[in-house]
């Protein structure tokens, strides 16, 4: 039986802002484990936007887990549906390969909740079929997921704040806004590169 985990977080941004920001979530200072992101397919069906993306992330496992899971990176498939009428964005991610060792499925629903607020309801199913170790691996998976949740929310908020600064929501501030956004994204990209270099050097050392 998979372990189930859920939580809810609120973003102080409108649903439209969250939906736009979703595609620009990476890089951010909390996403140093995300190595690549690609769009695999995308189409509009019945007024909804269906997207499938492929992400690669570094694989952070404790020492005892290395015997099962020694890959340096994992590939993740992210499906999503944006319904602009109902203002709902649903994302569904799963890891590609190694699913017998540990499979992590995550579903997040971003819904408009009043003006300037969006609620994200996150569900996760974590499973393992390694004989004798599945319980330990599931427990590890849930714990890692729980910790990552805060990081995901903080990272996403960081991006949203740089895309939609709080002061003067007037329509005439577009030029300075894009300028600031560009600077912040570059700074975030530089931070990612530095962190990646750190990860790589620590991986190479062991």
């Amino acid at each position: 039986m998979a372990r189930y985990y859920e939580n809810t977080s609120t973003f102080n941004f409108s649903w439209d802002q969250v939906a736009c920001g979703y595609w620009k979530r990476y890089p951010n200072p909390q996403s140093t484990h995300v190595l690549s992101e690609d769009t695999w397919s995308r189409q509009v069906k019945d007024g909804c936007l269906h997207t499938k993306r492929l992400l690669t992330k570094t694989n952070r496992v404790p020492k005892w887990g290395e015997r099962f899971f020694n890959a340096q990176s994992v590939k993740i498939i992210e499906e999503s549906i944006v319904d602009p009428e109902k203002k709902i964005l649903v994302t569904y991610t799963r890891n590609l390969g190694y699913t017998k060792v540990m499979s992590v499925v995550e579903r997040v629903e971003y819904k408009a909740a009043g003006p300037g607020q969006t609620i994200a309801r996150r569900s996760a199913w974590i499973d393992s079929q390694v004989f004798g170790f599945s319980r330990a691996i599931r427990a590890f998976g849930v714990e890692r997921f729980r910790k990552n949740c805060t990081q995901m929310v903080n990272g996403f908020n960081h991006v949203l704040h740089s895309m939609f600064p709080r002061q003067v929501p007037s329509q005439h501030t577009m030029t300075p806004m894009t300028h600031t956004l560009k600077e912040m994204r570059e700074a975030a990209a530089a931070a990612t590169d530095r962190a990646k270099a750190n990860v790589l050097s620590s991986v190479n050392r062991t």
């Binding site: 998979a2 189930y4 859920e6 269906h50 499906e79 999503s80 549906i81 649903v90 994302t91 569904y92 799963r94 499925v105 579903r107 569900s123 199913w125």
Partner: peptide
């Protein structure tokens, strides 16, 4: 998976 019957349900 998303939107099909294979999708996990809470």
């Amino acid at each position: 998976i998303l939107g099909t019957e294979n999708e996990f349900k809470a």
